[in-house]
């Protein structure tokens, strides 16, 4: 971890619970998903299956260290947007929900077990799962009223979840923090497993 990132390790993890609470609160507005920034921003943070996977990307990046800590969050939005484009254009993709749930299990286990995969492999794993997440969002929102506002909100929402994961992952600088991060990975894997088994 670079010295510049250390202040983030102390402050940004505090944002995670607030963001998750916000996600839970917004999940029950009952409003429509018609277009715009709010729609784009809320989409990645509305479902726990999406939230845990994106936080796990940041966590895994932090576990892998430099340069993965920032390469994975650079790769994910690009590939996720590509997946969303496929969904918007109506290109079918099989087993999307399974892929999303599996992403929680795999990425959560990678964090829990502190798997030190080579960067290209980690990027491919993250990229493949990003397509499933993006496709789901794209399929659900074919008619956003304002594409620019939706796109900005969508990317910001995704990016903030990654940052939350990275910030939590920076706790790995301390022994106790490493345990917390690995426990968080385990929790993510359990949530992913619950979605995979259809009990969530």
């Amino acid at each position: 971890m670079t010295p510049l990132l250390r202040p983030m390790a102390r402050s940004l993890p505090l944002a995670l619970p607030l963001m998750l609470l916000a996600a839970a609160a917004q999940a029950h507005t009952g409003g429509s998903h018609a277009g715009g920034f709010v729609s784009g921003f809320s989409h990645p943070i509305l479902g726990w299956d999406h939230v845990v996977a994106m936080v796990a990307v940041g966590l895994w990046g932090a576990v892998l260290g430099k340069p993965a800590i920032w390469i994975l969050p650079v790769v994910f939005p690009l590939v996720m947007a590509f997946g969303a484009a496929l969904g918007i254009l109506g290109v079918p993709l099989p087993a999307v929900e399974t892929g999303i749930a599996l992403s929680g299990v795999v990425l959560g286990l990678a964090v829990a077990l502190a798997v030190r995969a080579p960067l290209p492999i980690a990027a491919v794993v993250v990229g493949v799962f990003a397509i499933f997440h993006g496709h789901a969002h794209g399929t659900e929102l074919p008619a956003a009223a304002n594409p620019l506002a939706y796109g900005v909100g969508f990317v910001l929402g995704t990016g903030l979840l990654h940052m939350a994961g990275i910030a939590l992952g920076l706790l790995t600088a301390k022994p106790a923090g490493r345990i917390v991060v690995r426990l968080a990975g385990g929790l993510i894997a359990v949530v992913g497993g619950a979605f995979l088994a259809g009990v969530a």
Binding site: P73, V74, V75, P77, L78, M80, A81, F82, A84, A85, I88, L89, G90, G138, P142, A144, P147, L148, Y150, G151, V152, F154, V155, L156, T158, G159
Partner: peptide, 16 residues
């Protein structure tokens, strides 16, 4: 990366 992602989404909306 974020700009590219937004552009990809906008392109998809235009093509759709």
């Amino acid at each position: 990366s974020w700009l590219a992602a937004i552009l990809i989404l906008m392109l998809a909306f235009v093509l759709a």
